Simulated scan of single mutants.
Amino acid sequence: MDILETDAYDRRQRRNSSCILFLFLLPFFVSSSLYFYLWIPQNAPSLFAAAVKCSPVLSLAVLVLAHNGGQSLLGVAGGLLFSACGDCCLIWPELFLHGMAVFAVAHLLYCTSFLSERYSSLSSSSSSSALFLSISLWLTGIGTYFYLLPFLQKRTDSAILTPALGVYMVLIIAMTTLALHTRWSVTAVGGLSFLLSDLALSLQVFGVVDPLAEGRAVVMTTYYLAQVLIAVGDVKAGSYTGDGLRKRKIM
């Protein structure tokens, strides 16, 4: 009977936690919907455009801080805050390198979080699949970098951009690899979505394909999806102890 009561209690806890999490995510859904509704032209950079673009990610940072506390500033919450700064930089094309540097710091913070005990590793069988996918990602990343090299060399800032992009690609693939090896599927999908978003962005920024409204929509949809999944994964990870047991609390 005790086992049945414990199981019923855990189900109620999960249901209550899901409802509370959904309420905390409402600011993200509203602000991201506002971004797509306004769809401010890229050729009209402004502080208002920057605020609209970064507000969904800032709302996620508040969510993670509310659930996991100040220590998350050295993890996912900090990564989200740096990502929001990167969003602001990318509003102005001349700040592209600054934005890339800020996002690089965000990936480092994500990596730090994914290496913690809260993100315990997968089982051996699942880890094998994640390892195969990780190797594929690294090989794809190396191939993509060399494919982009001729396009990078046409730019006036190629002397700085070429090595900077190499470092950035190493960091984002490392972040995605670590995400794949956590026990949280939402985190893994979030890492992959972030990688897809950056790939779509780089193809447009570096002139591989012509920038289109549809291309921007792909970039931002996968980007916001990545950030919300990483944030939700961190909230879930924060509700478990180091040995994988659920904490007896609501969120």
Rank of each mutant, 00 (worst) to 15 (best):
V57D: 04
L60Y: 08
A61C: 02
A61M: 01
A61Q: 07
V62Q: 14
V62N: 14
L63F: 11
V64R: 11
V64F: 04
A66E: 03
A66M: 08
H67D: 11
N68I: 00
G70T: 15
G70N: 09
G70D: 12
Q71K: 15
Q71P: 06
S72F: 06
S72Q: 14
L73M: 05
G75P: 10
G75W: 07
G75N: 03
V76W: 04
V76M: 01
A77Q: 09
A77F: 10
G78K: 05
G79R: 07
L81C: 06
L81G: 03
L81V: 04
F82H: 09
F82E: 06
F82V: 02
F82A: 10
S83F: 01
S83R: 00
S83Q: 03
S83W: 01
C85A: 15
G86V: 00
G86Y: 01
G86W: 01
C88F: 06
L90C: 02
L90I: 02
L90H: 01
L90P: 13
I91K: 10
I91G: 12
W92G: 08
E94G: 13
F96K: 14
F96G: 10
L97A: 06
G99E: 09
G99V: 05
M100I: 01
M100P: 00
M100K: 01
A101D: 11
V102I: 09
F103E: 11
F103P: 12
F103K: 10
V105D: 10
V105I: 12
V105T: 02
V105L: 15
A106T: 05
L109Q: 09
T112L: 04
T112N: 14
S113A: 15
S113E: 14
S113Q: 13
S113Y: 07
S113G: 12
F114H: 08
F114D: 04
S116I: 01
S116F: 08
E117N: 09
E117C: 11
R118G: 14
R118F: 10
Y119T: 04
S120T: 07
S120V: 06
S121N: 14
L122E: 13
L122N: 13
S123D: 14
S123P: 09
S123W: 02
S123V: 01
S123H: 05
S124N: 10
S124M: 07
S124R: 08
S127W: 02
S127D: 12
S127P: 04
S128D: 14
S128N: 09
S128E: 03
S129I: 05
S129G: 05
S129Q: 04
A130G: 09
L131S: 11
L131C: 03
F132K: 13
F132T: 06
L133H: 11
L133N: 15
S134Y: 07
I135F: 15
